[in-house]
Structure formats: structure tokens, C-alpha cells
Design a protein around this nucleic acid. Structure first.
Lengths: 156, 156
DNA sequence: TTTACTGCAAAAGGTTTGCATGGGT
DNA sequence: ACCCATGCAAACCTTTTGCAGTAAA
């Protein structure tokens, strides 16, 4: 945890910005769990702990926390963005169950080789990659078959 | 083009829904170009051709057109979703330049092998995968170096 | 004839922004 | 003292929805 804070302080100082208790509070809460998160969830967690931090401050600071390499966007779902920790984690990708929302993280080294190939082939400087695999998890495969194929249509 | 329409008609009939001129108009416009698209862009293209189609109808029909397998969501950028054709295309992934927005499509078969491994390892039924690789394209690598590393911060 | 589909406009929900206040440096 | 960062509320933008009219089957 202190590693993340130290990294952030260094980043802030180097950019000539200001360190504030609010900013550290946000980072501490983000890294208080190992899970993915979204803005609303983070805001509620802070509120429950008695924090007076505003959502606006979260929205204003997230780009900063991304830029310094602590977190990144992972996917857009249910109308809002979801984030995950980068710092202290191997770069990993996600299996997402579209039925129950379960997330399985996996590491795959072939993607690094792929990145290298792409850089060579297209003269591209790769910053990041994000592989999002969707489907049905073990527990939901049966449920899907019972409900029948039309269930995917929702309202239609 | 007629292939897409035929597939959609079959899908609609099978679901017991109704085929309308508006629905075919949307599909024809989507497949009028080979490019990725978003809702607003599609709406403006239709407008310019004199169509009276409403945005609401586009929003209401996109899930349907996704479900029948003609298009899919590719990424969320600039506050809205972007889509691409599936029908008649090999499953491909994207290199995206974060500076100029250039898109390079590439096909990579190792991802199919990866999918199979994931299915086996996690007892997962994979529906789709989406690999989004971001970075700087050939033309923007120089520009990035000239502007310096702080440019990525934008407003900050 | 039934009822799904459309257009319109309003609502909803996430994110951004203007402004006055407060606080880091 | 300067001016960046915050909280609040309003604004903004994309997407969804209620409703009344229209048209496909």
C-alpha cells in the first residue's frame, strides 16, 4: 500500500502538482481491496467509512492515477467504466461470464510475443493491450441450456 | 449486402418479430461502408441521405443486429460505444493509435488456441473475445517524441 | 385485428465543468 | 501569496423509456 502512495507522491511532485489528503484517500481506498472497481462503488465505500470526498474529485483524479500507472480501464459495462489495479500485478486478462458477472483473471505470455510481432510488422509502439473474453462460466453453462437460446435477447 | 439483409430477415422471422423498412434501412447503411461506426455517425449518414429515421430506433435495433451476428461492440471511446461488422469478416482484432485514432486490423490465430485452452482450463464456454491493442502508430511515434512525455496528461 | 415498431420528447445515468472556497507549496 | 484542488450543483452527452400513433402479420 505504501508503495503505491510513494509512487504517486513522486509522480505528483515531478509533475509540479499538489498532493492532497483527498488524493491519497482515493488511492488508499482503491488499493484497500484486490478487486476491480468502478467510480460509484469506490465513492460508496469511501462514504461508508465516513469520508466526505465528492464524486467529482474521484472523476478528476482517475486520469491522474491512470497516467502514473497505478490503475487502468478494463471494460465498459452497465453504462460505466470499470478499472483495475496495475501496480504490483502481472499484466493479466479476463474471462467474464455474461450471465453472472464472474471474473476469472489469467496470464498469457503468448500475448507478449504477439505484441512484439505487431510492433515489428506495423511499426507500432504498443502501450497496452487488453484482451476481454466473454462467455458462460462453469456454473452458468447449465443454466443457459435450461433457459434456451432466446434468453440472450432480453426484452425482445 | 443482400446477404446481410437475408440473414436478418431470416432471424427476424424465426424470432416472430416484424421486418420494417426502418430496420433494413439501418442495416443497409451500416454495411454501406467497411468501416467501424458509432450511433451518432450512423444517424448523421442516414440524415444526409434524407432519411427520417430516429436515433431511438437505431438504439433499439442495435441489440437485435448484434444478436443476429451482423455486428458487435468493439470499444468504448469518447463517451460512446463503437461497433464493427462481423458478417463476412474474419474475426480480427485492432491496433489503435491513441494519438491520431488510426485503426489497424489484424488476424491472429494464436488467440483461437488460447480460447480453447481457457475453455478447457476454466470450464468456460467462450462466446467472444476482443483484443484491443493501443499505442502510437508509425506516423505518431516521432510526434510523441517531439512533444515530450507530459503530453499524455492532457489538461493536467 | 392484434400488437410490435416508430418518432418524439422526456427521463435516466454517467461524466464533466463553472464557480466560489479552501489548502498545498 | 499564488493558484491548484475541492465540493457543490448545474450542465452535458449518450442511451433508455413512456406514450400515442402507425403499420406489419
Amino acid at each position: 500500500m505504501e508503495d503505491e502512495i510513494d509512487l504517486f507522491r513522486f509522480f505528483i511532485r515531478e509533475k509540479g502538482l499538489r498532493n492532497t489528503p483527498e488524493r491519497e484517500e482515493i488511492i488508499r481506498e482503491i488499493f484497500a481491496t484486490h478487486d476491480h472497481f468502478d467510480v460509484d462503488e469506490l465513492y460508496l465505500r469511501l462514504r461508508q467509512k465516513g469520508s466526505k470526498l465528492s464524486k467529482a474529485s474521484i472523476y478528476r483524479n482517475i486520469p491522474l492515477i491512470m497516467t502514473c500507472g497505478l490503475i487502468r480501464e478494463v471494460w465498459h459495462e452497465d453504462g460505466h467504466m470499470h478499472y483495475e489495479h496495475i501496480y504490483g500485478h502481472h499484466h493479466h486478462c479476463h474471462l467474464r461470464c455474461v450471465k453472472c458477472g464472474k471474473i476469472i483473471e489469467f496470464v498469457d505470455d503468448t500475448l507478449n510475443a504477439l505484441e512484439k510481432n505487431l510492433e515489428k510488422k506495423y511499426h507500432f509502439k504498443v502501450l497496452d493491450h487488453n484482451l476481454d473474453v466473454t462467455g458462460y462460466c462453469k456454473g452458468c453453462i447449465g443454466a443457459r441450456e435450461r433457459k434456451g437460446p432466446t434468453s440472450i435477447l432480453g426484452g425482445y
